[in-house]
């Protein structure tokens, strides 16, 4: 079995954590070739070559791949798909955009958010916002799938794969990039952070959400939010943890003022240690918390800040 792993490359830099976790899943399916496609992706390709278990790295360096547009990347991958039994990517926004397009062009059904590899044809994935786990077996000649990174450990370093440059595919030019509005932050990235501090509707306002951010900064953590907090305008959408947001599995997850709707739990229940602070002792979040503190967050968080 030959597997093509599409590396997550952002601004010419390899997203090591996401790619290394997807690599662990990909290795269970066969021999792994990594594709880095971006504008100026030489550095990313070198970084990917160092990951343990990579046989070869292909580098498609072209301006067409600089902004993660689906159409040119799909055309590139489809052109080389004949050499592979599996096409795999970490389930990032970029991959969710492009992988179904690749699958359709190959007349295959995409398998999204794989959480376990049973064998080379059979995969587990969550459905109904994580309320059920489905095991599916694919009959397609080429398996196209995205991997939910939170459930796989990152592959280590120590590899020394060769890097080969490949030509870009023709660009249809039917879509073009205009601008990115990415929040600049010194905090760790949400999906790979060791600690995540999240706030929910209980935080009550955008101003009070600053308290969650202060606690996160004290712990060197990323900031998350529940869907309710995002919908109420307390936090930006890219902080959303849950089935429709990001799925995280840090060492420590601190849920403040979050009731624990199933859609939120789906995004964080694989965390190693979960702390919940909520004044409602019946809140469902306590059913998954290792340590629950029934308290008013406006008392508990300042005290916690003082004592950490």
């Amino acid at each position: 079995m030959a597997v093509l792993l599409i590396a997550e490359v952002s601004g010419g830099t390899l997203a090591v954590d996401a790619t290394a976790k997807a690599l662990t899943a990909a290795k269970a399916m066969g021999d792994v070739t990594v594709l880095c496609a971006s504008a100026g992706c030489g550095g990313a390709a070198e970084a990917a070559a160092k990951l343990d278990g990579v046989s070869k790295v292909l580098c498609a360096d072209d301006a067409a791949y600089g902004h993660d547009l689906a159409e040119p990347l799909a055309d590139l991958v489809v052109g080389m798909a004949g050499d592979y039994s599996h096409i795999v990517a970490p389930a990032t926004a970029t991959a969710k955009n492009v992988m179904p397009r690749i699958a359709a062009l190959l007349d295959a059904m995409v398998i999204s958010d794989v959480t376990a590899v049973v064998d080379a044809d059979t995969f587990e994935r969550p459905i109904y916002a994580g309320n059920a786990i489905q095991t599916v077996k694919s009959a397609d000649a080429t398996k196209v799938l995205t991997v939910r990174t939170a459930t796989f450990d990152a592959a280590g370093e120590g590899g020394s794969a060769s890097v080969e440059s490949i030509a870009a595919a023709a660009n249809s030019g039917i879509s073009e990039w205009v601008e990115d509005k990415v929040a600049a932050s010194d905090r760790p990235e949400l999906t790979s952070a060791g600690i995540v501090v999240s706030g929910g509707r209980g935080v009550g306002s955008e101003d009070d959400f600053k308290m969650i951010e202060t606690l996160a900064d004290k712990l060197g953590a990323a900031v998350g939010a529940s869907r309710a907090a995002v919908d109420s305008g307390y936090a930006p959408n890219d902080w959303q943890v849950g089935q429709t947001g990001k799925v995280v599995a840090p060492e420590l997850y601190v849920a403040v003022g979050i009731s624990g709707a199933i859609q939120h739990l789906a995004g964080m229940k694989d965390s190693k240690v979960i702390v919940a602070i909520n004044k409602d002792e019946e809140a469902p979040i306590f059913q998954v918390a290792d340590y629950g503190l029934v308290a008013d967050l406006f008392d508990a968080v300042p005290e916690l800040l003082e004592k950490l």
Partner: peptide, 11 residues
């Protein structure tokens, strides 16, 4: 809505 923020494209 993309990871880390927003992206505007013209199709």
């Amino acid at each position: 809505e993309v990871d880390g923020g927003l992206q505007t494209i013209k199709v």
